[in-house]
Design a binder for these strands. Structure first.
Lengths: 200, 200
DNA sequence: GAACATACGGAACGCTCGCCCCGGTTAGCA
DNA sequence: TGCTAACCGGGGCGAGCGTTCCGTATGTTC
């Protein structure tokens, strides 16, 4: 019961399992069989279960770390001087992440994974700030909420993850970025007289 | 072997199965157990298999019809006088569809369902025309391809389908719509001198 | 180097779910 | 109304996967 230091091989195997889980979860999502993770780590299924009580726990262990990194990144941006740039940087980060991280969108809305709830709430909270500040300087349309952003990002990550063409992600990201901006080009001083306007 | 008319009860049960499959696939996607569909239809699992050789075949039967409707709708719009409005109408249609149709995004990119391939190719072809014509009048940004649009729509449908809040869909749809438009308000005749242009 | 605790591997269990089969029933027709 | 063929229901089989258990191997300590 006391937290005696793990035996050397146990420690090594635990790391191998985590490494294999990171790779396979990122590649195929939580659907990957646990036996495959064990095989990739060079251990038996039993060994995985001695370190993690359940498959979900392993997924949580891998994903919580990833979410936490994302939260840290967002938190730093939430206090930045330029909220518009901060918001853009967050989108950039997520776009990079989406390259081959199929587990991230699953982590956003995994049901029944109570272990992930704190990290998700943290992310939600910091996203709320990030969005609000970007809205205050007119960089993001006013009606958007953090939940909308999360849904949008999740959809983007999933859609991009399934597409064989990696350049799809770039164009999707551009669409999201521009779509999130307020409709009229109201940035700074400019006096266009675009007819047929839809905004007042 | 000859296509003798089905017995009355067989015909009725087949319709019931299709109806139940439509509802349950739309609500929960292809993950719904076949026994549930059978139970909802008031028949045994064996009856389902007498009408459809496999679960995938049942899914294809339900989804092909849905995709075909969508293709018909898009085909009519692809020849419309106002390509910009036609494109918008297609987005509207898909937004409505997303209300509670969890099977549609799965139909877009279901792997190994060869029965759906023709419908998917039809959809892709007509979307290509729809996008190109909208681009010709400056209603859609030039770099977008039909595959990008499909990925975006799939993401939107999935994100909206999983969210408990139905109003999320509205805001997501607006973001997509505006994001798909060309960045600068370059509608028709106007002589802007936008520096740092990305198009010739 | 020996003894002990700890960890390992993989066979085995139970559960879910797609799919098949057989005894009973019902529809259609003479 | 009665016969026959088609159809129905649900129990059952097998595969895949998460999880557990136990005999064996290995690191650690004296």
């Amino acid at each position: 019961m006391a937290d005696r230091p793990l035996r050397a091989d146990a420690r090594r195997n635990r790391e191998r399992v985590l490494e294999a889980a990171r790779e396979l979860f990122a590649a195929s999502g939580i659907a990957v069989p646990l036996d495959e993770i064990a095989a990739r780590a060079g251990v038996g299924p039993g060994t995985v279960y001695r370190h993690f009580p359940t498959k979900e726990a392993l997924f949580e262990a891998v994903t919580t770390a990833r979410l936490h990194d994302l939260v840290e990144f967002a938190r730093a941006r939430a206090a930045a001087d330029d909220p518009a740039a901060a918001f853009d940087e967050f989108l950039d980060r997520l776009t990079e992440e989406a390259a081959a991280k199929r587990d991230l969108p699953e982590a956003f809305t995994a049901v029944g994974m109570d272990g992930l709830a704190p990290a998700r709430e943290e992310l939600f909270a910091v996203l709320t700030v990030l969005v609000r500040r970007a809205q205050e300087v007119g960089a993001v349309r006013a009606e958007i909420r953090a939940s909308d952003l999360l849904a949008l990002l999740k959809g983007m990550l999933q859609a991009a993850g399934e597409s064989p063409d990696p350049t799809v992600l770039d164009r999707i990201a551009v669409v999201l970025r521009d779509g999130l901006r307020p409709p009229a080009p109201q940035r700074i001083n400019l006096s266009t007289d675009t007819p047929g306007g839809r905004a007042p």
